[in-house]
């Protein structure tokens, strides 16, 4: 049986050359919700995701996915890395890239076949990119590239999705498409962890938020945690713009 906690992080500490990047993080994420990880630049947001996925080595601590270490639960996890982390001039079509999401399930040596193509097309439908299936990936706009990455994660058919800055530099259409997709995922009972930059949209898009600045500042339901005081703790003095902001969610900010 699954516990109701999808992710359980205990005492996670990561250091690059003895400089702590993440300091003793404890985190419990209930399943079936959308969580944003926010914090200033250099707060360790991406590192937190990568450490949970076992992509960077932790100096201490561990991550449990539905009660078991990540290595045993890989099939339950989908990952959307930052768009800028790959070379988009790579000789590959959109369909090719999306099918890469099935490689893990295929295991060694077996090649993707018809089933994988069908899954990939279905995922491309969900992000409204089916017409682009045969396009070379360098011919896509930034938003389209992002949607291809989302489709690649969707074919992983996971329970938990980790997304690193999916809203970074995308057009309005793509932003709406991603939001819709996130809501569909939540409706299907999936958990989605998103590294997010835009504080304004946090209350609108997410249920749960973790404020991070090397240490965990706070983590919990947006309404409880996304307060001005916590934001000031996370961002230092640099959060003043928030009180001046047009207030997409003034009630949560009025602490």
């Amino acid at each position: 049986m699954y516990s109701d906690r999808s992710i359980e992080v205990t005492d996670l500490t990561v250091a690059y050359r003895d400089k702590p990047v993440l300091w003793d993080i404890d985190l419990n994420v209930p399943s079936g919700l959308l969580m944003a990880i926010v914090g200033p630049n250099g707060a360790g947001k991406t590192t937190l995701i990568k450490a949970m996925l076992g992509l960077v080595r932790a100096a201490a601590g561990q991550t449990l996915i539905y009660g078991k270490p990540y290595a045993e639960q890989r099939r339950l996890v989908g990952y959307v890395p930052q768009r800028g982390s790959v070379d988009w001039d790579f000789p590959s079509s959109v369909l090719d890239v999306v099918m890469m999401g099935r490689y893990g399930a295929l295991g060694w040596i077996r090649r993707p076949g018809r089933r994988e193509r069908e899954l990939a097309f279905a995922a491309l439908d969900k992000v409204k990119m089916r017409d682009f299936a045969d396009r070379q990936i360098s011919q896509l706009s930034g938003g389209q590239q992002q949607r291809v990455f989302l489709a690649r994660a969707l074919v992983q058919d996971a329970q938990i999705y980790f997304m690193d800055e999916p809203f970074q530099g995308v057009d309005a259409t793509t932003e709406r498409a991603i939001v819709t997709l996130l809501q569909e995922l939540r409706a299907a009972g999936k958990t989605v962890i998103v590294v997010h930059h835009d504080l304004q949209t946090v209350p609108e898009y997410f249920d749960w938020v973790t404020l991070l600045n090397v240490r965990k500042i706070a983590s919990g339901p947006v309404n409880d945690v996304f307060t001005e005081e916590n934001l000031r703790l996370a961002y230092g003095g640099r959060v003043s713009f928030l009180s001046r902001a047009n207030g997409s969610a003034p009630e949560t900010l009025a602490s």
């Binding site: 982390s85 070379d87 890239v97």
Partner: peptide, 9 residues
């Protein structure tokens, strides 16, 4: 193309 994604799988 994307070694980190590969590692995550």
């Amino acid at each position: 193309f994307d070694p980190e994604f590969g590692a995550s799988q």
